Simulated scan of single mutants.
Amino acid sequence: MNAQQPHVMRPGWTTRRIANPLMGGLHRLGFGVAGSRQLTVRGRKSGEPRRAPVNLLVVDGRHYLVAPRGHVQWTHNLRAAGEGQLGLGRRVSPFTADEVADERKPELLRAYLGRWGKQVGAFFRGVTADSTDEELRAVAADHPVFELSFSAGTRP
């Protein structure tokens, strides 16, 4: 993370007012788009539930959330709470989250960009799934990644 200013690409009006509510509605009905889920996490200041659509990344059987827009509100809330829920329809999967160190991120960012690069590539400043590990490490601090652990018997 840049010591002066963390990387944040705030969503525009269309995303906030149209795309995210539309995705939330689809998630409540049980429809995920390309692995998307509804993240619910306790607000770090208000204590109230906060929701955001996220893409659930699975690598080698492990589950991750990647923040393509950088250090946004859900990342601060998840970091503070250490736990949340992923929802799709009636299925709600509680989890605990551990933030991934920057050194581990190149493989995960490559997998994320390989799956959703067309959707989120603009947020990665020219880095793609084909970028070198060195290029991916250069942007790693700008994109929080959380590894999720689910309770026994639950699945995302």
Rank of each mutant, 00 (worst) to 15 (best):
9 M>C: 10
11 P>Y: 12
11 P>R: 04
11 P>S: 11
12 G>T: 02
12 G>Q: 00
12 G>F: 01
12 G>S: 02
12 G>D: 08
13 W>T: 07
13 W>V: 08
13 W>Y: 03
14 T>K: 07
14 T>G: 06
15 T>Y: 03
15 T>I: 01
15 T>C: 06
16 R>G: 03
16 R>Q: 05
16 R>H: 08
17 R>W: 06
18 I>S: 05
18 I>M: 15
18 I>H: 05
20 N>W: 11
20 N>F: 15
20 N>R: 10
21 P>R: 12
21 P>S: 12
21 P>G: 13
22 L>R: 06
22 L>C: 12
22 L>A: 15
23 M>I: 10
24 G>Q: 14
24 G>R: 15
25 G>L: 14
26 L>V: 06
26 L>W: 13
26 L>Y: 09
27 H>F: 14
27 H>M: 01
28 R>E: 08
28 R>I: 02
29 L>V: 08
29 L>A: 15
29 L>I: 08
29 L>D: 04
30 G>W: 10
31 F>S: 09
32 G>A: 07
33 V>E: 01
33 V>R: 08
34 A>R: 13
34 A>C: 01
34 A>E: 06
34 A>D: 05
34 A>S: 04
35 G>A: 02
35 G>D: 02
35 G>W: 00
35 G>N: 00
36 S>C: 01
37 R>F: 07
37 R>E: 00
38 Q>N: 02
38 Q>V: 00
39 L>H: 03
41 V>H: 04
41 V>W: 01
42 R>I: 13
42 R>V: 11
42 R>S: 11
43 G>T: 09
43 G>P: 13
44 R>F: 09
45 K>Y: 11
45 K>V: 15
45 K>M: 08
45 K>R: 15
46 S>P: 04
47 G>A: 02
47 G>I: 00
48 E>R: 15
49 P>T: 06
49 P>D: 05
49 P>R: 05
50 R>S: 03
50 R>Y: 10
50 R>H: 10
50 R>K: 12
50 R>E: 11
51 R>L: 06
51 R>H: 15
51 R>E: 15
51 R>K: 15
51 R>A: 14
51 R>S: 12
52 A>Y: 14
53 P>V: 03
54 V>N: 00
54 V>M: 03
54 V>S: 00
54 V>Y: 00
54 V>K: 00
54 V>G: 00
55 N>H: 10
55 N>E: 06
56 L>D: 04
56 L>Q: 04
56 L>I: 07
56 L>S: 04
57 L>F: 04
57 L>Y: 01
